[in-house]
C-alpha cells in the first residue's frame, strides 16, 4: 500500500473528500486552518464547493442548509469557534441533518491559547448546545486514524441521520505521519427525507420546530431511542491490559503520551495498561467496568482539569479509586511527570 506523508488536518480533509464530502463551510481559526486551506485547494478539483463563511455561526448554518439537501458536508473549527457553532449543532441534531463537524481543541476558556489541549470534552460529548440530543464523537489518536475516522464518520452520519463530531486537538492537527488513505467511496445511501432533486417525491421539510409539546416529546423520545441504538457504535482500543494492575484511560493525543507511560512503567515493574476510548460518545463504560476485578486503581490522563474522568467514574462507580493526571491550557503532559504520579500511587 502506498504511504503518503500528511498533517493530521490534511488527513482529516482528504479522508472527507474520499468519503464523498463535496461541500465545506468554515471560518479561519488556529490551530485548524490547514483543514479549510486543504479543502479550498482540493474541492474545486472534484467539482466541490469550498466557502469561507463570515462566521462560525454562518458556517454551521450553511452546513444545515447543504446537509438538508442530502449532500455530504463538513465544517471544522477550534474551541472559541466551536462555542459559536453550538446553536447550529443543536438544530442539526434535532432536525436530524447528517454532517461531520471537526473540533480541533486548543487551550481555553476564553480566547485562551492556540496550542493543542483537551478542554472541550464536555462541550462535544455532553451536549454543548441546548436541548436533549446526542452526537457520535470520534477521537482520533494518530494521523492514520484522523483520516480513517473522518472517512467513516460520513457513513455513520448518514446511517443515523445525525451529526458526527471528530474531536481532535492542535497537536494531532499539526503533526505529520505517513498514512495509507482509504479508497474513494462510490456508493452513497438514498435520502428520501432530503430536499433532493427528485421531482417525483412529496415535498420535504427540514425543521427542528415542534410547537405542540406532545409532538416535541415524541420527537425527543424517538431521538433518545436512536441514541440507544447509536450506543452500539462504541469503540475502544487497549494496550497491555491483560495482566494490568493499573489502568490509564486516555484519548487522542493524551493516549499517545499514555502509551509511552505504559512502556516505561513496565520497565520499572508497574503493570500498567491503557484503555483508549475511540468513541467518546458512546463512551466505553462496559469495557472499563470489565477491568475492575483485576485493577487496583484507574488513572485518567487528559489535557484538562478533569472532564473525561467523570465518565470513567460513571463506568466503575466507587469500586476503585480514579486519579486525574493532566496539564492545562496547551501545556503537554510529560511522560516522566505522569509516571511519577502513577508510581506514587502504585508504590503506596
Amino acid at each position: 500500500m502506498e504511504q503518503v506523508l500528511l498533517k493530521g488536518s490534511e488527513a482529516i480533509a482528504e479522508g472527507a473528500v474520499l468519503a464523498g464530502c463535496r461541500f465545506f463551510f468554515g471560518y479561519p481559526i488556529t490551530p485548524q486552518n490547514e483543514i479549510p486551506e486543504y479543502f479550498a485547494r482540493r474541492l474545486p478539483q472534484v467539482n466541490g464547493t469550498f466557502l469561507q463563511a463570515e462566521s462560525e455561526i454562518a458556517a454551521i448554518n450553511m452546513v444545515y442548509g447543504a446537509g438538508g439537501t442530502g449532500a455530504r458536508v463538513m465544517t471544522s473549527s477550534s474551541s472559541p469557534g466551536m462555542s459559536l457553532k453550538q446553536e447550529g449543532i443543536s438544530y442539526l441534531s434535532c432536525a436530524e441533518v447528517p454532517c461531520v463537524i471537526v473540533s480541533i481543541m486548543r487551550g481555553g476558556p476564553g480566547l485562551g491559547a492556540i496550542q493543542g489541549a483537551q478542554p472541550d470534552y464536555f462541550q462535544a460529548v455532553k451536549g454543548g448546545g441546548h436541548g436533549d440530543y446526542k452526537n457520535i464523537v470520534l477521537a482520533p489518536s494518530t494521523v492514520q486514524e484522523a483520516a480513517d475516522l473522518t472517512y467513516q464518520a460520513f457513513d455513520l452520519a448518514d446511517k443515523y441521520r445525525n451529526p458526527v463530531i471528530i474531536l481532535g486537538d492542535g497537536i494531532l492537527a499539526q503533526m505529520m505521519e505517513p498514512i495509507v488513505l482509504p479508497n474513494e467511496k462510490q456508493d452513497f445511501p438514498e435520502k428520501n427525507w432530503a430536499l433532493n432533486l427528485d421531482k417525483n417525491r412529496p415535498r420535504n421539510v427540514i425543521s427542528s420546530s415542534y410547537p405542540i409539546v406532545e409532538e416535541l416529546e415524541k420527537v425527543i423520545i424517538r431521538l433518545n431511542q436512536k441514541a440507544e441504538i447509536m450506543k452500539g457504535e462504541v469503540r475502544w482500543d487497549t494496550l497491555q491490559v491483560e495482566d494490568a494492575d493499573y489502568i490509564i484511560v486516555a484519548y487522542g493525543t493524551s493516549a499517545r503520551i499514555a502509551k509511552a507511560v505504559v512502556r516505561q512503567a513496565r520497565e520499572i515493574g508497574i503493570k500498567l495498561g491503557l484503555l483508549r476510548p475511540i468513541t467518546l460518545w458512546p463512551f466505553p463504560y462496559d469495557a472499563i467496568y470489565s477491568l475492575v476485578p483485576q485493577v487496583k486503581a484507574f488513572f485518567a490522563l487528559e489535557m484538562s482539569t478533569g472532564q473525561m474522568i467523570e465518565d470513567v467514574k460513571i463506568a466503575i462507580g466507587r469500586e476503585r479509586p480514579v486519579y486525574h493526571i493532566g496539564r492545562y491550557g496547551g501545556v503537554i503532559p510529560r511522560v516522566n511527570e505522569t509516571l511519577e504520579k502513577i508510581t506514587a500511587v502504585a508504590k503506596g
Binding site: 461541500f23 448554518n61 444545515y64 442548509g65 430536499l195
Partner: peptide, 16 residues
C-alpha cells in the same frame, strides 16, 4: 422548506 435558526436563514439558503 427548511426551517432556520433565528437570523440564520440567509446562511441556510446559501448552503442549499
Amino acid at each position: 422548506m427548511s426551517a432556520a435558526a433565528h437570523g440564520r436563514a440567509p446562511a441556510v439558503a446559501t448552503g442549499i
